[in-house]
């Protein structure tokens, strides 16, 4: 009996040490990411029944339980969509959004330690996604695609420390940069202190490249965070549901799809 217990203590200690070693050495490495992607691919077939059941249940809930509410919501969203398209067309003459310009993708992995930095979606190059494409939620820019494989892609969030997006305040045409603080908040930088930018004004993207066109809504201006060297830093209020994102829309520019 004691021999068995001693064995258990040895095995338990080895398992604990191995666990600690893995935990300390594997966090945020490419190998972990690759292994994680591989396991997702390997389990795709055995998990297929659950995915199918989920889709059926989601559809049933959609049609039977929330039909009326969703219909009303759909109307509002349709109006917003039309408004968005008009805004885009007005802001940027050469970009025309068609029916297939927005691709909906599900978030399949959002690692807690990178919560405000990045996440993975279930659409990839086979669906026409390329690095640099804009990612929206609730009609507002939340990030950009930075890594793409055949059936999945990684998105870098606007709230992360590594993302900066040139932006313009719609009402005053002041140019600045929207950046994240790594803790879930957005800031608007480099706005001259004498500028008339005020709380409640709309912020949208300034032209960066063909993948991230001008006029994509980012949020609205909040209060002044600080003033330094003649420039103000404003809080940006995004209407995207950054903490409760399950789906996102990928903006595929004309000619971007395969």
């Amino acid at each position: 009996m004691f021999r068995q217990l001693n064995f258990a203590i040895v095995h338990g200690t080895i398992a604990l040490l191995l666990g600690v070693t893995l935990l300390l050495s594997s966090a945020n490495t490419n190998l972990t990411q690759r292994l994680s992607d591989f396991s997702e691919r390997a389990l795709r077939l055995p998990e297929f029944p659950a995915f199918t059941a989920r889709r059926i249940v989601a559809k049933a809930v959609f049609w039977f339980d929330q039909g009326l509410n969703l219909k009303e919501e759909l109307e509002v969203l349709r109006d917003e969509n039309v408004k968005l398209k008009v805004l885009l067309a007005a802001r940027q003459g050469d970009v025309k959004l068609g029916e297939s310009d927005m691709l909906t993708a599900e978030i399949t992995l959002r690692r807690p330690e990178d919560w405000w930095e990045k996440f993975r979606i279930n659409k990839g190059s086979k669906e026409g996604i390329r690095p640099g494409f804009a990612v929206l939620n609730n009609g507002f820019l939340v990030g950009r695609v930075y890594k793409v494989s055949a059936h999945q892609a990684w998105v870098r969030l606007l709230t992360g420390l590594e993302m900066m997006v040139p932006a313009v305040v719609s009402e005053t045409r002041d140019l600045g940069v929207v950046a994240g603080d790594g803790k879930g908040s957005l800031r608007l930088l480099y706005i001259p202190s004498e500028s008339p930018v005020a709380s409640g004004m709309n912020i949208e993207t300034a032209l960066v490249n063909e993948y991230l066109p001008a006029g994509l809504p980012i949020g609205t201006v909040g209060g002044v965070l600080e003033e330094k060297d003649g420039y103000s830093v404003f809080v940006v209020k995004s209407k995207a549901q950054l903490s409760r994102m399950y789906q996102v829309q990928i903006y595929i520019p004309s000619g971007g799809e395969k």
């Binding site: 191995l18 666990g19 600690v20 070693t21 893995l22 935990l23 300390l24 594997s26 966090a27 972990t32 990411q33 292994l35 994680s36 396991s39 997702e40 389990l43 992995l109 690692r111 807690p112 330690e113």
Partner: peptide, 8 residues
């Protein structure tokens, strides 16, 4: 591997 993305 499947869900957490952090080995260990």
């Amino acid at each position: 591997l499947r869900w957490a993305g952090i080995l260990g």
